[in-house]
Design a protein around this nucleic acid. Structure first.
Lengths: 319, 319
DNA sequence: AAAAAACTTTGTATCGTTTCAAATTTTAAG
DNA sequence: CTTAAAATTTGAAACGATACAAAGTTTTTT
């Protein structure tokens, strides 16, 4: 039913091997080239990657594991990865793991059954156990945004501790001494690092830090911020340490009528697009999403070509 | 390098055909069954779907085309689709088309080269031309959330006009006579229908309708709402007709200090999770995301099994 | 205990593509 | 115009899994 290379062969009077050569960049006599191209158009040929991958052991497809399709920071990274890989003629298979390690494990198997050439994962936990079936088969794996305990996979992350520390220091230096930090799930290395950075800064500068768990969601950020603001009317600053929580916290601020000025500072994380428009004067820690995605893609391709495991730490910008 | 069915054959002393039979549910003698299962565990066998699909012409994989990975309504639908298809043991390949018909076209080819069994698309435009290469090959296609001009593909949409009309009527009935509607891109059937519904309701009930284009983004919704509120201080209601714009509009409301009460009504679209918490008293038009995803999946599977093209219209809830 | 029936396993061909050595054609050199 | 060298094309054998008819078991019936 589908048009195959054999149909092209019949149509052109050539052999399947020649058509294949044409597709793979070998030189083909001009008049044959033309015949082939005409036949492709006429029959609407689309190459069957399954057969190709079966023969070549390369699918030109890489798998992406995302913890939540509803988390805009992650979907943003996927977009960057796609951009980078498209240029190298790689396609993507995206799997939503719902922050569930068992789905992650299943997804890894699914990707392997599709013989992807490598996997980029934004890990749902610090444990790499769900990735083992890939690692065991020497399939290149890059973890993005969060560390795992495995030494066999590459990591591309930001210096979370430092970024959080700097952001906190900046608030303290501007005279905001009592600050609430809305932090994410402590099960994640990334969240712990950010909180640790805040604590460091507060300890060094003699500030008062109120930590409030925001559960990695807009709702959680909203509620945590509300709580902090109600319980500490004398609060001088708020720092939300991820995308979703930053939005929630911003709404809470608006609702409590808090102005951002010399008496109150607000720092968010990662949402450059909307928040600064809505809360002029706020600060923002920005992970270099473009670079993260690009470097993860590059690292994976290097591993596919036999390169070593790499651990890369990028810096955040604060604006 | 990868473990194949032949390795299992060698390990168990059986034949590839028997192992295949085992995987495909044929009956196998208990002691052979055990041997096979031991070998699978020992060698870590994962079936090569490429080879299988090549032989069977069924990949048990379906493709999903999403216009923007950053649009939460769409990602929510994908999650529902995934849920429904997982139960039928289908896997998903998700492609982000960036609302760009040419990427859509490319993605359709990519999916075909992966021999997906069918495609669910949330169309970026009313035109189905980018889907033609699939339709021409009799590959089942279901359009979700928006109509296309093609009669060869199934559609699963909501009754947009009616939902918008009802929501508007409700506001009018509560005495809000001057209402601004923040509407989406008129290039999309869905947006036009919603706007038409609002106009209908206003015309019938003698209300005043101010239409403001919000460009399908949070930012756009925010700006359009701001504009409407500033230019019409006597406004009595606001209706944002999609997810992103509803959030933007809500922020604008908060910023302008508008209360939701008998003097001012606010109706949003699709974001049940956060907005009602932040704006108590507001109304919301809810598309049945779960049902949309489930019905789209079901319709596609029916088409894969030779079923006919279907056009299904679901109703929205208003809360 | 032999024959029949029912169940399992096996060989072999095949899916659509690429590989690679061998065969053929073209071009360049003498 | 021959012949050597270079460039194209070809045929057959993979890749990993499944289909199917044929062969080999086991179980049941007589």
């Amino acid at each position: 039913m589908a048009v195959t290379i054999k149909d092209l062969a019949r149509e052109t009077g050539l052999t399947a091997a020649t058509i294949s050569a044409y597709f793979n960049g070998a030189s083909v006599r001009p008049y044959n080239r033309e015949k082939i191209e005409r036949a492709i158009d006429k029959l609407g040929y689309i190459r069957n990657d399954y057969a190709r991958a079966l023969r070549t052991h390369r699918s030109m497809t890489i798998g992406v594991l995302i913890p939540e399709l509803s988390n805009m920071f992650f979907t943003g990274l996927v977009t960057e990865i796609e951009e980078a890989l498209r240029l190298k003629r790689y396609g993507l298979i995206i799997c939503d793991c719902r922050s569930d390690p068992s789905r992650e494990r299943e997804a890894v198997k699914f990707l392997q059954s599709k013989t992807v050439d490598g996997i980029i994962v934004m890990p749902a936990t610090d444990s790499a156990s769900s990735l083992m079936s890939a690692v065991d088969k020497r399939l290149p794996v890059v973890a993005l945004d969060n560390y795992t305990e495995s030494r066999s996979i590459s990591h591309v992350v930001v210096n979370n501790r430092n970024a959080a520390k700097q952001a906190t220091e900046q608030m303290l230096a501007q005279g905001h001494r009592k600050i609430a930090v809305i932090h994410g799930d402590e099960k994640l290395f990334t969240s712990r690092e950010r909180l640790a950075g805040c604590r460091n800064a507060a300890a060094q500068a003699d500030g008062v830090l109120i930590a409030e768990q925001g559960g990695n969601s807009v709702r959680g950020g909203y509620e945590a911020a509300k709580k902090a603001l109600c319980e500490h009317p004398d609060l001088q600053g708020l720092f939300a340490t991820n995308y979703e929580m930053s939005i929630g916290a911003a709404v809470a601020l608006k609702e409590c009528g808090k102005q951002i000025d010399e008496n109150f500072a607000f720092t968010g994380f990662d949402c450059a697009k909307i928040l600064p428009v809505l809360c002029p004067g706020m600060h923002m820690v920005l992970q270099p999403a473009h670079e993260l995605g690009a470097v993860a893609a590059e690292t994976l391709l290097a591993m596919i070509d036999g390169g070593p495991v790499r651990n890369i730490i990028l810096n955040c910008r604060i604006i």
